[in-house]
Design a protein around this nucleic acid. Structure first.
Lengths: 111, 111
DNA sequence: ATCGCTATTCAGCGATACTATGTACCGGTA
DNA sequence: TACCGGTACATAGTATCGCTGAATAGCGAT
């Protein structure tokens, strides 16, 4: 996918995952697979799991262990109220950035 | 400004600076001041200077020392052809990301 | 029993931005 | 003269985040 996306994902991937979880609960493997389908072609598995650990520690998600038919038990994550709040913050920050970038692209008010 | 923006700027700030320089040449202090006016309220000076060194080393910008009326000489940066190419790549990557995020925000096709 | 798919975990690395300074040049004022 | 504030650049150390690469483990099918 290229290093450029990798760097740009920093701070954004967390928001993406929270947004996914605001739709419905999901587990790591599932999230990774979906992201790949969406064009984030080579997001490393380890990345998503590490991210989920981080957001869990911050209280943005709850975890429930659910036995799987095929393989080890899944850790199903769901968004907490705090997580929803964080997601709202994320969208605000994203909007700010996206708006600035859009202006810049259109050549508007450069120095 | 908050840590969230800080993380989101990773990989984006370089593109922003290149975009600024595609408008016209500029020097570090000036760029920092302009960014702050634009709402990136607490971008550290050191950050911009370090970034400019990086993009110079990669050949994205040329430098010219220009004496200043008030203070030490300015290092005026201008975009090279390679830098323009990098900027184009940046916009492509940004568009991809922005599009995905927009879909996600609208609740479209979640897993 | 071995392969392949599912599913999670972890140590070490690289890139980027921030913090917190330090250096240096200039004009104005006491 | 001596000092201060604004201009301008530089850098060492820190933190965060995502990637690499590998390990662990359960299950069904060949």
């Amino acid at each position: 996918m290229g290093k450029q996306v990798t760097e740009m994902l920093k701070g954004v991937l967390e928001g993406i995952v929270l947004a996914i979880l605001s739709g419905r609960a999901a587990y790591g493997y599932e999230i990774t697979a979906w992201l790949r389908e969406q064009g984030f072609s080579d997001i490393a598995e380890g990345t998503v799991y590490a991210l989920l650990v981080r957001v869990e520690q911050r209280g943005f998600v709850d975890v429930e262990k659910v036995p799987s038919e095929k393989g080890p038990p899944r850790k199903v994550y769901s968004l907490t109220a705090l997580g929803q709040q964080q997601l709202d913050e994320f969208w605000k920050t994203w909007s700010f950035l996206a708006h600035r970038l859009e202006q810049l692209r259109e050549g508007g008010n450069r120095p």
